[in-house]
């Protein structure tokens, strides 16, 4: 797919695709009707490009790894627990945190569309919203994990959460071994986006860039 990294709204391309032209036309119409202020649209785009992303979720996970009381609160009511943390952005209802253990691995999907915890992970990646993942996750999660290069023990129970309502899910992955005494900030570096969806595992200390 061609990448267009140009984020300037009014930049002129020599060739505009049909979709680009139609999108611009609709924005012009909504602006002229007084339905939207284009500056407010700029601000929304900027928010997701610069502010809201998987760093938010990673900090929550790292906190849960180091603070047993917070972990307990997170698993009991994730929305409330996260909103008591001053340094992490707020999250709306109803966020549910689900914990991976040696016995059980959790994975999140939205078979019907693309439901995803935006405040914690940012906008979902293309694969999460695409047909292969949405169709297979609930039937062949081990096959899906293989596509991500992840193999679990044969007897590990897999629980797939299909986000069919306005509840949202974040996976609390297992803390990697060899991280005793690490700070929250350092631990957060190990927490990948996919480990919070359940299609990946956190990085191991050896995978950290020095």
């Amino acid at each position: 797919m061609a990448h267009d990294h140009d984020h300037h709204h009014d930049h002129e391309h020599s060739e505009l695709s049909e979709t680009q032209l139609r999108v611009r036309a609709l924005e012009t119409i909504l602006t002229e009707k007084g339905y939207v202020d284009p500056k407010a649209l700029d601000a929304i785009v900027e928010m997701y490009e610069t502010k809201i992303g998987p760093r938010n979720g990673a900090r929550v996970v790292a906190k849960a790894w180091t603070d047993p009381a917070f972990k307990q609160a997170l698993l009991a009511d994730a929305t409330q627990a996260i909103n008591t943390l001053g340094h992490v952005s707020r999250t709306g209802d109803h966020l549910i945190a689900v914990e991976n253990t040696p016995q059980r691995h959790n994975m999140v999907v939205c078979t019907l569309c693309s439901c995803y915890p935006w405040e914690m992970l940012g906008l979902p990646p293309v694969w999460y919203k695409a047909s292969p993942y949405r169709s297979r996750a609930v039937k062949d999660p081990r096959g899906v994990l293989a596509d991500f290069g992840v193999t679990l023990a044969k007897d590990t129970e897999i629980r797939v959460w299909d986000s069919t309502a306005e509840t949202r899910f974040i996976v609390l992955p297992m803390r990697p071994e060899g991280t005793d005494g690490w700070s929250e900030d350092k631990l957060a570096e190990l927490v990948t986006r996919d480990s919070m969806i359940g299609t990946g595992l956190p990085k191991k200390p050896a995978e950290m860039k020095s």
Partner: peptide, 27 residues
């Protein structure tokens, strides 16, 4: 539907218009 194909270092939007659409729908 085939394999799941993760994209390394995926950008927030692949085209500028995608962001405008997302923002318009939110608005």
């Amino acid at each position: 539907f085939g394999k799941v194909e993760p994209e390394a270092n995926e950008p927030t939007f692949h085209h500028e218009w995608e962001g405008r659409v997302m923002a318009m729908v939110r608005a």
